[in-house]
Design a protein around this nucleic acid. Structure first.
Lengths: 333, 333
DNA sequence: AGTTATATTGTAATCGGTTACATTATTTTT
DNA sequence: AAAAATAATGTAACCGATTACAATATAACT
């Protein structure tokens, strides 16, 4: 591999001039630049990213820390991030935090030493101090689905509240009168927001009761269990709005096991819009988040901040969309 | 951030000695080492990974290049790789190649400049020359699901042939007599092997005919279409072995649309063992690859090679297991 | 006792870039 | 025409580690 000094020698100039040509940071005589270009060409020279990184404290890498790539919500996010990053010549380091603050801290520690350009946290358990520390060191961060309290960096999320309202309204339109909700762990702001949206609309129904809500923890099994509980208390419920698709799948399973037909007897709606929803039987109505776009946007914002060096603590809330499918279909009467 | 010189100064020794203490590369007087340790402690010193990388040409990063993290097969692989890497203090860079040789080359080019320690390719389209080039530069590689021809580095795959045989035998045991196969793109060795396994067992059946095979391309939609074709030629088929789970899901959908009951009229078996198989209705029998373990093993082998510097061109073939589920259930008569 | 081997430590080059500062030549300003 | 500004380039320090080589002291060997 040729180095910048090889190029300088061949072109008969100093390394500084070569650097200037490469980075266009300073004016260089066009003729000289030509020589340099020719030398670069001849030697097939490519600047060494690590040396650059050492000098500039930026490795051209962004870190994406998410809870678990196995959770079907995250691959699309990762892909969104990676596509944008790759287009700009940056690479993406992936970390699974399992929603453990400790693991997040550990990633931060390791990755800071590697001079990553910035972090995207799609994780709910980052310690506030970690964020603060990164800020103080001027390392750009973008947060996904984090509260307002951390107003010290860009935050992206989708409009969970409105999404829930869409879901419940849709269930009502399809004829549901007694709509249950399986909510996610309340330490997640997304889960809280979705519950609020549900309460806002479902609370108006004559049949509404707080006991129509049951906790799950965002996985399939908990969705199934929640429905079992709900059916004990309300055997006559006719709609279920699950806080995410995974729990909705669990709900579908529970109903199927009990011989309760979907959508005829009970209609089910999920949240997230992951691919799974297209392969259940019946296919699952869901509130789709623009996950891929969220990832891309997060990367875009991060890259902007990296390039410009200016932090904009914007809070971006993306719109979600209802995707009506068979699981909430209303038979024409 | 403290540097090694700060430590040296505080401990009253040279940077070389500090380096020796940190890396245990050379003998250091225990007393001196103590001083150094104390200084390190006091300054909260942590070696800068980039400077180290520049000096040693290794950044403590491994690159995982896969076709598409959105394909449900790969998250588990990625997780397997990442878990092992993280345990050893390495980080993982993720790249989506979309099975485009060009994108792979592009990743290689970029990542070599970043001194990644090694590559794991789970992609089917790497140019032979790229592999050769990396080898020549002594950069460790591990390949997943690649042919024997590339015997110049470690290769991991699962026993696709045996897996197919397991699948077809299972279908026969469950009472199938006319078993169709949806095979994947023949440029993928996995697809070829699975087809061979199918032919080996299904070929013995009285009802066998080459026209029982139909091509798909490993996605849901192609599985559905393949079944439509197959049903035209063989309305009386009673078993379908799909070359992967995604196509099996498509098959399920096609059958469901036509009102053909699974498993009563037709039994279906997939291949891969991805999570989707548990949420279809009926749940899908499949041949499970130990995907997470494959990832872990790939990382392990790569790390061994990185550490030791010696390449072992082993070919490891992992066992697959049949997971019988409802989609091939035989009604007791 | 003289010599060789071993342990311990330091000096300075090296990895491969970026960039502050200095220098010279040329152009613009007054 | 002298002074000031601008363009073009080079020198060398710096980023923060590793490591070859040299130097010194001490232990072991003949």
């Amino acid at each position: 591999m040729a180095t910048i000094r090889d190029v300088a020698r061949l072109a008969g100039v100093s390394v500084a001039t070569v650097s200037r040509v490469i980075n266009k940071t300073d004016s260089v005589n066009p003729e000289t630049a030509g020589q340099v270009m020719k030398a670069i060409e001849q030697l097939q020279y490519e600047p060494n990213a690590v040396a650059r990184g050492l000098a500039g404290k930026k490795m051209g890498i962004i870190a994406l820390i998410l809870p678990d790539i196995l959770n079907p919500f995250f691959p699309a996010l990762a892909r969104g991030v990676e596509d944008v990053a790759h287009k700009k010549g940056l690479t993406v380091i992936l970390g699974n935090s399992d929603d453990l603050g400790l693991k997040e801290s550990s990633y931060i520690k390791v990755l800071k030493k590697k001079y990553v350009d910035g972090f995207i946290f799609a994780s709910n358990t980052i310690h506030e101090e970690d964020v603060e520390a990164l800020r103080k060191e001027q390392i750009p961060i973008v947060l996904l689905d984090r509260g307002l309290n951390t107003a010290s960096c860009a935050v992206i999320r989708s409009n969970n509240r409105e999404g829930s309202k869409l879901a419940v309204k849709h269930l009502i339109e399809q004829g549901c009168q007694k709509i249950a909700h399986i909510y996610g762990p309340q330490e997640f702001i997304t889960a809280r927001e979705r519950m609020l949206g549900y309460e806002e609309i479902a609370g108006r129904l004559r049949e509404y009761s707080p006991s129509l809500m049951e906790q799950g923890n965002f996985d399939i099994e908990s969705g199934r269990k929640a429905v079992e509980q709900l059916l004990v208390r309300h055997p006559d419920l006719d709609g279920i709005f699950a806080g995410n698709d995974l729990m909705a799948v669990g709900a579908l399973k529970a109903l199927h096991e009990r011989g309760i037909r979907v959508p005829e007897q009970v209609k089910v709606c999920g949240f997230d819009g992951i691919g799974l929803t297209e392969i259940t039987e019946p296919e699952l109505t869901t509130i789709a988040q623009p996950v891929y776009e969220m990832g891309g946007l997060a990367a875009q914002i991060l890259l902007d901040e990296i390039e410009s060096g200016i932090r904009e603590n914007k809070l971006i809330e993306l719109d979600v969309t209802l995707i009506p499918r068979k699981s909430t279909h209303k038979e024409e009467s």
